[in-house]
Design a protein around this nucleic acid. Structure first.
Lengths: 348, 348
DNA sequence: CTGTTAGCGCCTTCAG
DNA sequence: CTGAAGGCGCTAACAG
């Protein structure tokens, strides 16, 4: 390792093999019209020299970029974004694409900048895992890139990949109902305060509809306490559950709209000496932290990786549909059980 | 939006502005030797047309790639990798670089492939957050890229960025000691079974040394149960703590070599009806899951984001040092307390 | 089957 | 201060 090991070019290879550069390219690209001996000789030289084509020159010439941009929000890293990113990665590798990752840092200005950077790179597609500003998704589209919005989306038209939150919510609440619970509280973020409240609405409506169907009275606690710091995302869960515990009758179950909210709730319940699920059942949503919590949390698993995979497939045109909707899955762990006699008695 | 909006070139801009392409470039690159009126006219055309330079052509010509490759292990996504990735991202944006993310999937073969892909792209640097095979880091170096290994490293020489795990471990155990604990168990992975056991060793040795200094007897439970599935990483923690609880005397505190292990331990403790920290104190390591656990876990915070930032700075030559070592930080939460009379009595 | 030629879009001497 | 010309490394006609 000396100073700056200049990269080899096809000219070097051509010279070493005693052929023209055109022949080298043909061998590299598996063009059949090259005599076998020539082919072998070139191959030998290539591997002997350790030559690697210059993908930059190649892209310029062929206009094949084989790269997609993945723009994450400022929330990254969180399990959701990370898992989506991972799925995307996997699928990209599988299909021969590479991924440029950017973060919008939740700022429209920064988002514009990264979209422009992606455009300059002439990426084939721009995938937003939580876009900030509709104009930016339009901008990406105008530049000729395919555009995909994952889970959350602005009004801007594009391919979308999301999960059926309503259905997942129904399953969660219906599990509680089937266990015998009738006094079930809901804690979640206020749909109207979120950038795109559709996820929050779906989960909340699923809860309301499920209760209504059996004539149970809802108890909704919507987050006024929005906390943007990932490190203290449990805090709202703690606050909501405290409000609930301050009422005359404690519900027999709580449906938290996210695992993080549930985590906060579990902490308070523990501090108050209430056992889960003996004294109160808890269900989460996402299946991000669920398995690590105490007790292991029953939750609705969002197929994060699959979202990423689907997003990539759409991004490179390997999918027929333009609007994919994936199903969530209920995962029953140890935080749910039937209401005990004690609880039922206290309700009378 | 018609069919395929051809990208504009510098020629289009030049024609529209009635100047040569050379002038357009100069304006774009803020070359001072362009008359003000000309400059303004070109600028106007550029923004009016929405022209964006073709970074591919630009890179080919200038040989400035301004891109680094970040190769993650198959463990990704986990909070560690994700946070490192995030720090890297931030710093890259700040310094004008872009990041290509790859995953080695823990396979030497795949790792070789992604390193080659990075080389073909002529990236300025290759950053490994958990390299698999030393040959691949050598390969990257041979190709003229700067190479950085984060936290774990193979024997191959390169820039390294890591954290002082020994020091962090000492602080954790010394906290327990200062609280009055003398019977402290250690649960962790066996250093000899890890790819690069230096992290595991450092944490274990810190524990052993700290106990030795006060003459306390160590109780080490090393993981024979290695689980590679992220979804069930709590499992080992559960198994180890069960082994501990099966002994005659229960320790008054447990030092878990990672938050995930601690999470598993907390779950078992809860199931057995033991209160934390009243009956037993628990300390973790990493500060990944700690804040979400029940009770909020006292742990040693690893500066993951800072690792990523430092890695990027080293990767682009913006750092003076070639071997960075960052300090961890003890974060005291609610899982630690003094041993109670009951515990002390039971030890007699 | 193989070589020659002409660019991809941009930047950078070198002249004017 | 501005333009013309050449070339980065590779590929795709087009000839032989």
């Amino acid at each position: 390792v000396d100073t700056k090991p200049q990269h080899l070019t096809i000219h070097d290879v051509a010279a070493a093999a005693g052929v023209s550069t055109a022949t080298v390219t043909r061998v590299l690209r598996d063009d059949p019209r090259v005599a076998l001996p020539t082919r072998q000789r070139v191959r030998a030289i290539v591997s002997q020299l350790g030559y690697q084509v210059n993908a930059v020159a190649q892209s310029l010439r062929t206009k094949q970029i084989a790269t997609v941009a993945h723009i994450l929000s400022g929330l990254f890293p969180n399990p959701f974004s990370s898992n989506v990113a991972r799925g995307l990665q996997e699928e990209a590798t599988k299909l021969g694409y590479e991924v440029l990752v950017y973060s919008s840092e939740d700022s429209p200005r920064v988002e514009t900048e990264v979209v422009q950077a992606a455009i300059r790179r002439r990426v084939d597609a721009v995938i937003f895992t939580t876009p900030v500003n509709a104009d930016n998704v339009v901008l990406a589209g105008h530049a000729g890139a395919r555009v995909v919005q994952v889970e959350r989306s602005t009004g801007a038209p594009s391919i979308t990949v999301r999960v059926d939150n309503y259905c997942g919510g129904r399953e969660a609440v219906e599990l509680l109902l089937s266990l015998g619970h009738r006094d079930i509280a809901f804690i979640g973020l206020d749909p109207d305060r979120a950038t795109d409240g559709s996820i929050e609405s779906a989960r909340l409506n699923a809860y309301l509809d499920a209760l209504q169907q059996v004539g149970a009275r809802p108890r909704v606690l919507l987050g006024q306490h929005y906390v943007s710091d990932v490190a203290s995302f449990q805090t709202p869960g703690r606050l909501y559950i405290e409000e609930i515990l301050a009422t005359d009758t404690t519900p027999t179950a709580v449906f938290a709209a996210s695992d993080l909210l549930a985590a906060g709730a579990l902490q308070i319940l523990y501090a108050r000496g209430l056992r889960v699920p003996d004294d109160i059942s808890v269900v989460g949503f996402d299946d991000t932290y669920a398995a690590s919590l105490t007790p292991p949390l029953t939750t609705v698993a969002v197929p994060m990786r699959e979202l990423g995979q689907a997003a990539l497939r759409c991004a490179v045109g390997a999918s027929l549909e333009d609007h994919v909707e994936l199903k969530s899955q209920l995962v029953v762990r140890e935080s749910t059980g039937s209401p005990t006699r004690r609880q039922v008695a206290s309700l009378m």
